[in-house]
Protein backbone atom coordinates (compact mmCIF):
# COMPACT_ATOMS: atom_id res chain seq x y z
CA UNK A 1 0.00 0.00 0.00
CA UNK A 2 1.32 3.41 -0.87
CA UNK A 3 1.76 5.72 2.10
CA UNK A 4 -0.20 8.48 0.35
CA UNK A 5 -3.21 6.15 -0.07
CA UNK A 6 -3.01 5.12 3.58
CA UNK A 7 -2.83 8.79 4.61
CA UNK A 8 -5.81 9.64 2.38
CA UNK A 9 -7.81 6.78 3.89
CA UNK A 10 -7.00 7.99 7.41
CA UNK A 11 -7.91 11.54 6.44
CA UNK A 12 -11.28 10.46 5.02
CA UNK A 13 -12.02 8.69 8.29
CA UNK A 14 -11.09 11.75 10.35
CA UNK A 15 -13.39 13.88 8.19
CA UNK A 16 -16.26 11.37 8.43
CA UNK A 17 -16.27 10.66 4.67
CA UNK A 18 -16.99 7.16 3.39
CA UNK A 19 -14.37 5.61 1.06
CA UNK A 20 -13.43 2.24 -0.42
CA UNK A 21 -9.87 1.01 -0.93
CA UNK A 22 -9.70 -1.28 -3.98
CA UNK A 23 -6.85 -3.82 -3.99
CA UNK A 24 -6.02 -6.24 -6.80
CA UNK A 25 -5.26 -9.46 -4.92
CA UNK A 26 -2.95 -10.49 -7.76
CA UNK A 27 -0.33 -7.85 -8.35
CA UNK A 28 -1.35 -5.60 -5.47
CA UNK A 29 -2.43 -2.54 -7.50
CA UNK A 30 -4.53 -0.20 -5.39
CA UNK A 31 -6.75 2.85 -5.60
CA UNK A 32 -8.92 4.77 -3.18
CA UNK A 33 -12.45 5.59 -4.29
CA UNK A 34 -14.38 8.25 -2.37
CA UNK A 35 -18.14 7.87 -1.97
CA UNK A 36 -18.80 10.87 -4.22
CA UNK A 37 -16.64 9.54 -7.07
CA UNK A 38 -17.88 5.96 -7.44
CA UNK A 39 -19.55 6.39 -10.82
CA UNK A 40 -16.30 6.97 -12.71
CA UNK A 41 -14.75 3.75 -11.37
CA UNK A 42 -14.72 0.54 -13.49
CA UNK A 43 -15.99 -1.40 -10.44
CA UNK A 44 -18.69 1.20 -9.71
CA UNK A 45 -21.47 -1.34 -9.24
CA UNK A 46 -19.54 -3.57 -6.82
CA UNK A 47 -18.12 -0.62 -4.87
CA UNK A 48 -21.56 0.92 -4.51
CA UNK A 49 -22.97 -2.38 -3.20
CA UNK A 50 -20.11 -2.80 -0.72
CA UNK A 51 -20.57 0.73 0.59
CA UNK A 52 -24.30 0.21 1.04
CA UNK A 53 -23.76 -2.95 3.06
CA UNK A 54 -20.91 -1.35 5.01
CA UNK A 55 -18.97 -4.60 4.68
CA UNK A 56 -15.53 -5.22 3.24
CA UNK A 57 -15.19 -8.20 0.90
CA UNK A 58 -13.70 -9.82 -2.18
CA UNK A 59 -15.34 -9.32 -5.59
CA UNK A 60 -14.60 -10.97 -8.93
CA UNK A 61 -14.53 -8.92 -12.13
CA UNK A 62 -12.99 -9.60 -15.54
CA UNK A 63 -11.32 -12.75 -14.25
CA UNK A 64 -9.53 -10.95 -11.40
CA UNK A 65 -10.11 -10.83 -7.65
CA UNK A 66 -10.38 -7.47 -5.97
CA UNK A 67 -10.60 -6.81 -2.28
CA UNK A 68 -12.76 -3.87 -1.27
CA UNK A 69 -11.87 -2.37 2.12
CA UNK A 70 -14.95 -0.40 3.08
CA UNK A 71 -14.43 2.49 5.43
CA UNK A 72 -17.54 4.15 6.76
CA UNK A 73 -17.32 6.99 9.27
CA UNK A 74 -16.65 6.02 12.90
CA UNK A 75 -19.81 5.65 14.91
CA UNK A 76 -20.69 8.67 17.01
CA UNK A 77 -22.95 8.79 20.04
CA UNK A 78 -24.61 12.06 20.96
CA UNK A 79 -26.14 12.07 24.43
CA UNK A 80 -28.61 14.73 25.45
CA UNK A 81 -28.53 15.17 29.22
CA UNK A 82 -25.45 15.15 31.45
CA UNK A 83 -27.22 13.01 34.03
CA UNK A 84 -26.26 10.08 36.26
CA UNK A 85 -26.90 7.46 33.52
CA UNK A 86 -24.65 9.47 31.21
CA UNK A 87 -21.82 9.33 33.76
CA UNK A 88 -21.97 5.53 33.55
CA UNK A 89 -22.45 5.48 29.77
CA UNK A 90 -19.39 7.65 29.06
CA UNK A 91 -16.68 5.15 30.09
CA UNK A 92 -18.39 2.06 28.64
CA UNK A 93 -19.16 3.68 25.29
CA UNK A 94 -15.51 4.70 25.07
CA UNK A 95 -14.56 1.09 25.75
CA UNK A 96 -16.85 -0.06 22.93
CA UNK A 97 -15.17 2.42 20.58
CA UNK A 98 -17.93 5.00 20.21
CA UNK A 99 -17.05 8.63 19.84
CA UNK A 100 -19.36 10.22 22.46
CA UNK A 101 -20.37 13.84 22.98
CA UNK A 102 -22.69 15.10 25.73
CA UNK A 103 -25.00 18.08 25.29
CA UNK A 104 -26.92 19.69 28.16
CA UNK A 105 -27.75 23.39 28.58
CA UNK A 106 -27.96 23.00 32.36
CA UNK A 107 -24.53 24.18 33.48
CA UNK A 108 -24.85 22.50 36.88
CA UNK A 109 -24.96 19.12 35.11
CA UNK A 110 -22.67 19.73 32.15
CA UNK A 111 -19.33 20.09 33.90
CA UNK A 112 -15.94 18.62 33.01
CA UNK A 113 -15.61 17.43 36.64
CA UNK A 114 -18.57 15.09 36.15
CA UNK A 115 -17.22 13.89 32.76
CA UNK A 116 -13.43 13.95 32.91
CA UNK A 117 -12.83 11.98 29.68
CA UNK A 118 -15.76 12.95 27.44
CA UNK A 119 -16.54 16.20 25.62
CA UNK A 120 -19.43 18.04 27.31
CA UNK A 121 -21.11 21.02 25.68
CA UNK A 122 -23.18 23.22 28.02
CA UNK A 123 -25.60 24.65 25.49
CA UNK A 124 -28.96 23.97 23.84
CA UNK A 125 -29.24 21.14 21.29
CA UNK A 126 -30.69 23.47 18.64
CA UNK A 127 -27.47 25.51 18.83
CA UNK A 128 -24.98 22.67 19.24
CA UNK A 129 -26.28 19.99 16.86
CA UNK A 130 -26.47 21.70 13.42
CA UNK A 131 -22.69 22.26 13.14
CA UNK A 132 -22.10 18.65 14.26
CA UNK A 133 -23.87 17.45 11.07
CA UNK A 134 -25.68 14.40 12.44
CA UNK A 135 -25.72 11.51 9.95
CA UNK A 136 -26.74 7.87 9.64
CA UNK A 137 -23.52 6.81 11.41
CA UNK A 138 -24.64 8.72 14.52
CA UNK A 139 -26.65 7.38 17.48
CA UNK A 140 -28.62 9.67 19.77
CA UNK A 141 -29.81 8.98 23.30
CA UNK A 142 -31.92 11.54 25.14
CA UNK A 143 -31.96 11.37 28.93
CA UNK A 144 -33.33 14.70 30.21
CA UNK A 145 -37.09 13.92 29.89
CA UNK A 146 -37.48 17.66 29.47
CA UNK A 147 -39.30 18.41 26.20
CA UNK A 148 -37.54 21.79 25.94
CA UNK A 149 -34.21 19.96 25.73
CA UNK A 150 -35.00 16.53 24.27
CA UNK A 151 -37.56 17.44 21.59
CA UNK A 152 -35.35 19.71 19.44
CA UNK A 153 -32.61 17.06 19.57
CA UNK A 154 -35.01 14.28 18.55
CA UNK A 155 -36.29 16.38 15.65
CA UNK A 156 -32.75 16.75 14.32
CA UNK A 157 -31.91 13.08 14.83
CA UNK A 158 -35.04 12.04 12.91
CA UNK A 159 -34.31 14.48 10.09
CA UNK A 160 -30.70 13.21 9.85
CA UNK A 161 -31.83 9.55 9.86
CA UNK A 162 -29.52 8.61 12.76
CA UNK A 163 -29.18 4.82 12.95
CA UNK A 164 -30.31 4.76 16.57
CA UNK A 165 -32.56 7.18 18.40
CA UNK A 166 -33.59 6.47 21.98
CA UNK A 167 -35.35 8.55 24.61
CA UNK A 168 -35.82 8.01 28.32
CA UNK A 169 -39.34 8.25 29.64
CA UNK A 170 -42.36 6.20 30.65
CA UNK A 171 -44.83 5.01 28.03
CA UNK A 172 -47.11 7.91 29.00
CA UNK A 173 -44.33 10.49 28.67
CA UNK A 174 -43.35 8.93 25.36
CA UNK A 175 -46.94 8.97 24.08
CA UNK A 176 -47.11 12.73 24.64
CA UNK A 177 -43.71 13.13 23.01
CA UNK A 178 -44.90 11.32 19.89
CA UNK A 179 -47.96 13.55 19.71
CA UNK A 180 -45.77 16.66 19.83
CA UNK A 181 -43.46 15.31 17.11
CA UNK A 182 -46.38 14.41 14.86
CA UNK A 183 -47.72 17.94 15.29
CA UNK A 184 -44.34 19.10 14.04
CA UNK A 185 -44.94 17.16 10.82
CA UNK A 186 -43.03 13.90 11.43
CA UNK A 187 -44.75 10.81 10.03
CA UNK A 188 -45.77 7.83 12.20
CA UNK A 189 -43.08 5.75 10.41
CA UNK A 190 -40.45 8.28 11.41
CA UNK A 191 -41.44 8.67 15.05
CA UNK A 192 -41.79 4.94 15.62
CA UNK A 193 -38.02 4.68 15.13
CA UNK A 194 -37.51 6.26 18.55
CA UNK A 195 -36.69 3.53 21.06
CA UNK A 196 -38.74 4.08 24.22
CA UNK A 197 -38.66 2.99 26.94
CA UNK A 198 -34.97 3.26 26.17
CA UNK A 199 -32.59 0.29 26.45
CA UNK A 200 -32.81 -3.48 26.09
CA UNK A 201 -35.18 -5.11 28.55
CA UNK A 202 -32.65 -6.66 30.92
CA UNK A 203 -34.43 -5.51 34.06
CA UNK A 204 -31.95 -2.67 34.56
CA UNK A 205 -32.46 -0.70 37.78
CA UNK A 206 -29.38 1.36 38.59
CA UNK A 207 -28.03 4.14 36.35
CA UNK A 208 -25.06 1.93 35.43
CA UNK A 209 -27.34 -0.99 34.50
CA UNK A 210 -29.51 1.31 32.38
CA UNK A 211 -26.35 2.57 30.67
CA UNK A 212 -25.41 -1.03 29.80
CA UNK A 213 -28.90 -1.72 28.43
CA UNK A 214 -28.73 1.42 26.26
CA UNK A 215 -25.26 0.59 24.94
CA UNK A 216 -26.49 -2.93 24.16
CA UNK A 217 -29.45 -1.51 22.25
CA UNK A 218 -27.18 0.80 20.25
CA UNK A 219 -24.87 -2.11 19.34
CA UNK A 220 -27.91 -4.16 18.33
CA UNK A 221 -29.10 -1.36 16.02
CA UNK A 222 -25.60 -1.03 14.55
CA UNK A 223 -24.74 -4.67 14.03
CA UNK A 224 -27.91 -6.67 13.72
CA UNK A 225 -29.41 -4.68 10.85
CA UNK A 226 -27.53 -3.03 8.03
CA UNK A 227 -27.04 0.67 8.59
CA UNK A 228 -29.94 2.56 7.13
CA UNK A 229 -28.08 3.11 3.87
CA UNK A 230 -30.18 0.53 2.06
CA UNK A 231 -33.48 2.20 2.89
CA UNK A 232 -32.17 5.51 1.66
CA UNK A 233 -31.50 3.94 -1.74
Amino acid sequence: MRLDLLAELNRARAERRAAVLVTALEGGAQRLVHADAIEQDPLAEQIDAALRSGKSGTVEADGSSWFLTVQVPPVRLVVIGAVHITQALAPISKLAGFDMTIVDPRTAFATPERFPDTPVIADWPETVLPPMKLDRYTAMACFTHDPKIDDPALEQALAADCFYIGALGSRKTHGKRLERLREKGFTPQQVERIRAPIGLDIGAVTPAEIAVSVLGEIILALRKKPLRVEKAA
Binding site: L3, L6, N10, R13, V72, P74, V75, A96, G97, L222
Partner: peptide, 29 residues
Protein backbone atom coordinates in the same frame (compact mmCIF):
# COMPACT_ATOMS: atom_id res chain seq x y z
CA UNK B 1 -15.88 -0.19 12.21
CA UNK B 2 -15.36 0.90 15.78
CA UNK B 3 -12.94 3.70 16.58
CA UNK B 4 -10.13 1.24 17.21
CA UNK B 5 -9.85 0.69 13.42
CA UNK B 6 -8.96 4.30 13.29
CA UNK B 7 -6.07 3.84 15.68
CA UNK B 8 -4.85 0.77 13.80
CA UNK B 9 -4.44 2.35 10.35
CA UNK B 10 -3.43 5.64 12.00
CA UNK B 11 -0.65 3.76 13.80
CA UNK B 12 0.53 2.23 10.51
CA UNK B 13 0.79 5.68 8.98
CA UNK B 14 2.61 7.07 12.05
CA UNK B 15 5.16 4.23 12.07
CA UNK B 16 5.85 4.69 8.36
CA UNK B 17 6.29 8.45 8.80
CA UNK B 18 8.81 7.66 11.55
CA UNK B 19 10.82 5.85 8.90
CA UNK B 20 9.97 2.32 10.05
CA UNK B 21 9.20 -0.62 7.78
CA UNK B 22 5.48 -1.34 8.10
CA UNK B 23 3.09 -4.04 6.87
CA UNK B 24 -0.72 -4.10 6.89
CA UNK B 25 -2.52 -7.45 7.19
CA UNK B 26 -6.21 -7.57 6.23
CA UNK B 27 -8.71 -10.42 6.57
CA UNK B 28 -9.95 -10.77 2.97
CA UNK B 29 -12.10 -13.86 3.29
Amino acid sequence: MLASDDDILGQAEAWRRDGKGVAVATVVE
